[in-house]
């Protein structure tokens, strides 16, 4: 409590209030202390157990070798640039494809029935197939057809797989957002003469997208990690580079280096998502209606 706060309540602090403040301060100190001690104990014990295990010297040598870390890092970093590029390209397409699928699934126009059925089938099918199988089917299967004019670069099919796979999930996120906008908003828009497409575009979608930004970001954290699956097609990204290093040296530190790079990228994204969710909750709580 600052001087200014105290003076707002008039001259001096009443004895009752002083007692409450002292009690609250004590409580805060206590929880801080308990938190610090329990953290130290837990991590201390874990460290002790690991370091004293019989295999630790070998593990330390093959997973935590500073020499190998330094040696493998530049290669892996170059590879990680590729992960980011793949992630960014895939993300743009996912956002567009998923939105189209979500809108198709949300309309009730009878004219769009065949499209709606196709969109539903797509979402059901793709969400049921493991991404890794889809990756093999598209990444090895389509180029093997040797079709005229169809690109057979591994990276192209890898990105296509990610787009096809993630769009199904992201479409459902969008759709949840669209359905969370109360129908009275559509009624208000239609009553002003807006067509159903105009109501969707100018009234429903802007509100829906704003609401689903946190879950969308959550999916992108997952997408960023899944870009490592591309190693299986031979794309030279971070994990693939680490694999190559490991194959040559039998030292696993390179995997750790790759993991570290993913973490540096995904942790801030995850924190940012949490921040947005918290802010949204506060905004909703602050709205009277």
């Amino acid at each position: 409590m600052t001087e200014a706060e105290a003076s707002r309540r008039g001259p001096g602090i009443s004895p009752g209030r002083a007692r409450r403040l002292a009690y609250q301060r004590g409580q805060r100190r206590r929880s801080l202390l308990i938190g610090a001690v329990s953290t130290l104990v837990v991590f201390g014990v874990v460290t002790l157990v690991v370091v004293n295990s019989p295999g630790w010297p070998t593990v330390k040598e093959s997973f935590f070798s500073w020499e190998d870390f330094k040696a493998s890092f530049p290669e892996i970093l170059t590879g990680f640039g590729r992960n980011i590029r793949i992630f960014l390209i895939a993300e743009v397409f996912i956002l567009i494809v998923a939105l189209i699928v979500a809108i198709i699934r949300s309309t009730r126009s009878p004219l769009l029935t065949p499209l709606r059925l196709a969109a539903t089938a797509y979402v059901d099918l793709i969400r049921g197939i493991p991404t890794i199988i889809l990756l093999f089917l598209l990444g090895f299967g389509v180029p093997a057809l040797r079709l005229q004019g169809v690109p057979n670069s591994q990276e192209f099919w890898a990105i296509t797989t990610l787009v096809i796979s993630y769009s199904a999930y992201v479409a459902e996120v969008y759709r949840a957002g669209i359905e969370s906008v109360h129908e009275s908003q559509t009624a208000a828009a239609r009553s002003l003469g807006l067509s159903s497409a105009q109501s969707m575009r100018w009234v429903v979608l802007p509100q829906a997208v704003r609401r689903v930004i946190p879950p969308l970001l959550n999916d992108f954290v997952a997408l960023q990690k899944d870009s490592a699956l591309l190693a299986l097609l031979g794309v030279q990204e971070a994990f693939r580079r680490a694999q190559i290093y490991v194959a040559g040296t039998f030292n696993f530190t390179a995997y750790l280096a790759a993991a570290l790079l993913f973490l540096i990228f995904t942790i801030p994204l995850a924190r940012f998502t949490d921040y947005l969710i918290r802010r949204q909750r506060e905004r909703v709580a602050g709205t009277s209606l």
């Binding site: 009275s184 208000a188 002003l192 003469g193 067509s195 509100q207």
Partner: peptide, 18 residues
């Protein structure tokens, strides 16, 4: 839509676009 634009309606719960 032709008719709706000539008839305005005001709802109990306002329904402004937030």
């Amino acid at each position: 839509d032709q008719a709706r634009r000539r008839i305005g309606i005001v709802f109990q719960s306002f329904n402004l676009f937030p």
